[in-house]
């Protein structure tokens, strides 16, 4: 601290020593990257928005603006299929976050203790994070195929034999082929007329969520472990001197202290799940009755297969909007802190 006081404010030093030439050359050297990103991010997003309000809906490029300009969006939001896509994204995001972050926290707290095989656990829980979503999708797709995968294991383990003896039917879920939607929000509270999709949890989405949790919970665990390592032993000792139980220590002190980590996890994993594509594409595709389709797949299908470029572009703008809702406040806050 003392040393810091002795140093004059940074901008004075800069004025003193850094030459004007060097200060000019900085932005210049930065400019290739800035220009590339300006084109590839902002320019392209602008173009996509333009396409999404254009008449370009076939193999023939057409930049003219639709009449009215929101025509494509209007059609999109009235489309049951796209409503299902949005529902699926929300269900996927909520449950994936709940379980990935929750498991990550539990793993981190347990592994912060002295437990035999500590390093093994940490490494096994984190390794899926290093894999491609495509690998995850391919592997889990076979596991959750109802006729071949986990149901065979359930049979092999004799679970169904036991159930049969108990007079119950076999436990043979249809996993990624299950078309059912569990629950119907519309029957509980009145929904706006525009909503035609059944608002509930698509059963086929559950295996996809499991695969995503498998892949991403290690990330949350690693984040929490670093957070726990940063909490000084003094805090724990002070608490235990106060007679707080282990449970109280975590509930009242440590987990609240980890709040910034929790927020970071929710935002990073949340934005990944809002734009999820590869995993679902490789694992279940659109699913029965679009039960696992997400806007990323819809966009790919409409754009490259049906050639409705404007509809595809509009779906991608909706994705961008959802992601921005999460990311922009996060970036704005980070900027204030720097």
């Amino acid at each position: 601290m003392a040393a810091e006081v002795a140093i004059p404010p940074q901008h004075e030093i800069e004025r003193a020593h850094k030459s004007r030439f060097d200060r000019a050359i900085g932005p210049l050297l930065l400019s290739p990257s800035v220009i590339l990103l300006a084109i590839f991010v902002y320019g392209f997003i602008g173009t996509t928005i333009w396409i999404s309000i254009s008449n370009w809906d076939s193999a023939i490029t057409d930049w003219s603006i639709a009449d009215p300009w929101w025509k494509v969006y209007d059609a999109l939001f009235h489309m049951t299929r796209f409503q299902i896509n949005i529902r699926n994204t929300i269900v996927f995001t909520v449950f994936m976050l709940l379980f990935a972050v929750g498991l990550g926290l539990i793993f981190a707290i347990l592994l912060d203790q002295h437990i035999p095989g500590n390093a093994l656990f940490r490494n096994v829980f984190l390794f899926p994070y290093a894999l491609s979503f495509v690998v995850t999708g391919v592997a889990w797709r076979w596991i959750f195929n109802p006729e071949t995968g986990i149901n065979v294991l359930i049979d092999t383990l004799g679970i169904n034999w036991v159930l049969d003896k108990l007079g119950m039917g076999p436990f043979a879920p249809k996993w990624i082929t299950d078309p059912r939607v569990i629950g119907d929000l519309g029957s509980i509270i009145p929904l706006p007329d525009i909503i035609k999709a059944q608002i509930g949890i698509p059963a086929a989405m559950i295996p996809v969520i499991i695969a995503a949790v498998w892949q991403l919970s290690g990330f949350a665990m690693a984040m929490y472990l670093s957070g726990l390592a940063a909490i000084s032993d003094d805090v724990r000792e002070a608490a235990s001197l106060d007679g707080a139980s282990m449970w109280q220590l975590y509930r009242d002190i440590i987990i609240p202290l980890l709040k910034p980590i929790t927020i970071s996890c929710l935002i990073i994993l949340g934005h990944v799940s809002l734009k999820i594509f590869d995993l679902v594409y490789a694992m279940s595709g659109r699913g029965p009755g679009y039960a696992t389709e997400v806007p990323g797949i819809f966009m790919f299908d409409k754009t490259f297969k049906v050639l409705e470029y404007n509809t595809g572009a509009a779906a991608s703008v909706v994705m961008l909007f959802m992601v921005s809702l999460v990311i922009v406040p996060y970036l704005a806050r980070s900027m204030k802190d720097v």
């Binding site: 809906d57 049951t80 299929r81 078309p179 659109r286 029965p288 009755g289 679009y290 297969k305 049906v306």
Partner: peptide, 19 residues
Amino acid sequence: AAPKFQAAIGEACVNVLVS
């Protein structure tokens, strides 16, 4: 049929498989 109509029939078929 043109791709759009073909795709729309495809979507209807996906739906009827469930409904």
